[in-house]
Amino acid sequence: MRARTLLPAILAAALLTLTGCGSSEGAASASDTGASATEASPPAQPPAASNGSGADGAKVPEALNFTATTVDGKPFDAKTLAGKPTVLWFWAPWCPTCKGQAAETAKVATDNAGKVNVVGVAGLDKNAAMHDFVADTDTGSFPHLSDEKGEVWKRFEITQQSHYVILDKTGETVYEGVLPGGKGLADKVAGLTG
């Protein structure tokens, strides 16, 4: 019984040690090494044949074939994102790096409303903390998924918080990585809408 109680705590501590939230030291991003993000790591999910249609009758790639619940407890169907570029922002409520990205991510969401989907995917904590993060960072203008069990994180093979996955309108991953302070997010999104 004691081992079951300690194992999640040990795993969480190991994950924190590996991810290094709040520090970009020791973790070279694709831009630091001169490689593009798609060269640095495999795509989060390759696009697949349609599994139906999303918003405006758009084909739904496999990457967007999932459901979740928002931090506000509302059902969320990712199929509704199909047909538009999508930014998935993976964050944790206790992460200072994530808090530093919040303002820029919210600005990109507001500036591109109707043209680009921006969705926060919160994990590594309880829903109450996730809800507080959204309120404290004033990022409630776009949906945030409560991924306490890590199902969406696993789907996109995310191993650290403060991570972006950007999909083009067909659902293909065009960027995956860390953007300190959200810097560069607006440029990456502009490249998909212009």
Rank of each mutant, 00 (worst) to 15 (best):
D138K: 15
T38I: 13
T19W: 11
G184H: 07
D77G: 14
K59S: 15
Y175V: 10
T70L: 01
G171I: 14
A58V: 11
V178C: 01
Y164N: 14
D138V: 10
G100N: 08
P96T: 09
W94D: 04
L6C: 01
A63N: 05
E39M: 03
L185N: 12
H163I: 10
A122E: 02
S141A: 07
A186I: 09
D111E: 15
A92S: 10
G22I: 05
H163Q: 13
T69I: 08
L88Y: 09
A129V: 08
T70M: 02
N112F: 05
S50G: 15
V116A: 03
D147T: 15
F142C: 02
A9Y: 09
C21I: 14
D56A: 14
V119I: 13
D72H: 04
E148H: 04
R4E: 01
T139C: 05
L192E: 11
A30V: 04
P180T: 10
A190E: 05
K74F: 00
A63P: 02
G191P: 15
G182T: 11
S146Q: 01
A37V: 09
G114I: 07
D147W: 08
L81K: 13
D111L: 10
S146I: 06
S24C: 01
G20C: 07
T86Y: 11
P143W: 03
S41G: 12
P75F: 03
K74Y: 00
G114A: 07
T19K: 05
E176D: 09
Y164Q: 12
F133E: 04
T105N: 12
A9V: 10
G182S: 03
T19Y: 05
K115D: 02
G114E: 02
G194D: 12
E25D: 08
L88Q: 06
G140E: 03
V152Y: 00
L7G: 02
K149W: 01
T105K: 09
G52H: 11
E104H: 13
T159R: 14
A129M: 13
L124A: 10
G194V: 00
L16N: 05
A106I: 13
H131I: 00
W89L: 06
A103S: 09
L15N: 06
V108L: 12
K99Y: 09
A190F: 02
F66K: 11
D147H: 12
K59F: 05
A49C: 03
G100L: 10
K59E: 13
A40T: 05
A58I: 04
F90D: 08
S53M: 09
T67H: 03
L16Y: 04
K149A: 06
F66D: 06
